[in-house]
Design a binder for these strands. Sequence first.
DNA 1: CTTACATCCTGATTGC
DNA 2: TGCAATCAGGATGTAA
Length: 277
Amino acid sequence: MPELPEVESLRRILARSATGRTIVRATIAEARLRRAIAPELAAEITGRTITKLDRRAKYLILELSGGLAMLVHLGMSGSLTHRDAAFDSGSFDPRHDHVAFEFDDGTHLVYNDPRRFGLMKLVALDAIPALAELRAIGPEPLGPDFNARYLADMARGKRVAIKNLIMDQRVVAGIGNIYASEILFRAAVRPTRRSGRVTRAELERIVAATGPILKAAIGSRGTTFRSYRDSRGQPGRFAERLMVYGREDQPCLVCATPIRNVTIGNRASFLCPNCQR
DNA sequence: CTTACATCCTGATTGC
DNA sequence: TGCAATCAGGATGTAA
């Protein structure tokens, strides 16, 4: 579920609530995520202090004392919640609370993931840029390297739909199914267009639309369309500001034309047939 | 290399 | 009400 704005919101909240906390106990109740969590992770992080919260694309990076870091991806349904208590309280979800870290102040950081598409692994801090998971990921969409010239290079000659191109993590980091639809609506580009045929002016509009949408979503602490919650258990508020995603048959907020839901690459894609040509 | 598609897994919702 | 089908914010491996 989580895309860049949700992971970034999580990072910001955890930066305040978890930085400086020492892990006094780690419990892995269910290691079988998309790939199994290495069993030695629990012992190796115990006694270490969280020194910094970082993010790359949709990956959360918890830096630990001693030159290690924990790489966490939430997949489709993962969440990390910082709770007063965990495995010994009423807030415990025995089915999907898979990992719990108890801190030195008695609070718990709990990883919950019903579909188990997530990832959690311990890595050396200095090895992060070379990790297989991260090394091929494209520029951060809020940074200077994501610009029209770059996107034009990526789009040139490609036949894939422009929506799939901007969701490709090798092209640009962190954009998923919700924000891809929102960005293309704001840019007034139809998501089904073949990338290589999108004009330079349109690519410039896509780049220009990306920053404001992602920043606004971060400011609203992400989008809760179904089940996403931040580390305090709160839903994101950006859902009420979505222009097209999930608004099939409802009037376009610009021109009142009914929003359409078309399938692109087996994913739902929302567009206004009038605003996006 | 590019592209299309199945697959991992569980739960909520929709439709009959 | 019951039950089956469908869909869900992601990433990746495979095959054409």
